[in-house]
Amino acid sequence: MASSLLTPGQDQRSATVPAGRHQRPLRERLEPYLLISPTMLLILGLMVIPIVIVIGYSLMDNVVTNPTPKFVGISNYVTILTTPAFWSAAGNTLIFTVGSVVAHMVIGILFALMLNSKTMARVPRAIFRAIYILPWIFTASVVAVLWRLLLDPSGVINYLFTSVGLLHEAVPWLATASTALLAVTVINIWSGYPFFMISLLAGLQGVPTDLYEAARVDGAGFFRQFVSVTLPALKPILYSMALLDLLWTTQQFTLIWATTGGGPLERTEVLSTFTYKLAFNSYQFSMAATSAVIVLAGSLVVAVFYVRRQRKAAQR
């Protein structure tokens, strides 16, 4: 880039800067902006402007399908917030998300603690670690078809449950209204816990061993050590990961779309599938935009907590 080849003295324009003001030449001051302009253009053009567009859509009566949409203010918001289907999707999203995040955390801690156990030799540790990370390799589209196979009425899980007497007859888990939401939550738990586990494992290795020794000298058993040494040390990681997971799980689309499509009887409809259907199945783009903006607002609230948390952590 030509601008960077010029040293301040060579820059003609630097002579026009009023004397006494210690300002660097314009070119040099503009250089960082020039260099980050591709990133800024991409983010402006395909993140910021689309958000403005989607908010605009939500304030108009039916866009895209209607050539001359009218401004209708917040009436779309009133409509959607009084639609029972929206609240039912919001409720399902909440159950799905809270169930997933809590289970991710519990399983993540449990597996990380077992893998971190001092009594285990290197080779079994590496083998177990590799097995525990496995679900993380597979993308949601693959996870979905795999679990459809496993949970099929004639599938292997129903076989195992009926043969040990847990069930009297096979259950079509994903097609039964009372079990579908539980089933998709279990699938999401399976596919998401390794991310927690890996981060917690890294966190555990950072806990100073003399803290454990001190606790042991004081007569603390395994559980006491966990509560007063391990858990406080992992708290910052746990908090950050829980917020990230909350953000990602509320946005989950593929897993649900590819297992149940929101059914049966809308029992697994979450906000993302609800929004998608409004737009691409019933072409109500304004309603879909309204729902999308509400989802955005919710995500931003979580994000604010997350960024604040990171700030605090960075200052420490």
Partner: peptide
């Protein structure tokens, strides 16, 4: 400010962008 924007846009749900993206 730019830094905050870059961190912040990561929180934008894909489903929110999908509707305008289709048109764009």
């Amino acid at each position: 400010i730019i830094n905050v924007v870059i961190i912040g846009v990561q929180a934008v749900p894909p489903i929110t962008l999908l509707i305008p993206f289709f048109g764009i």
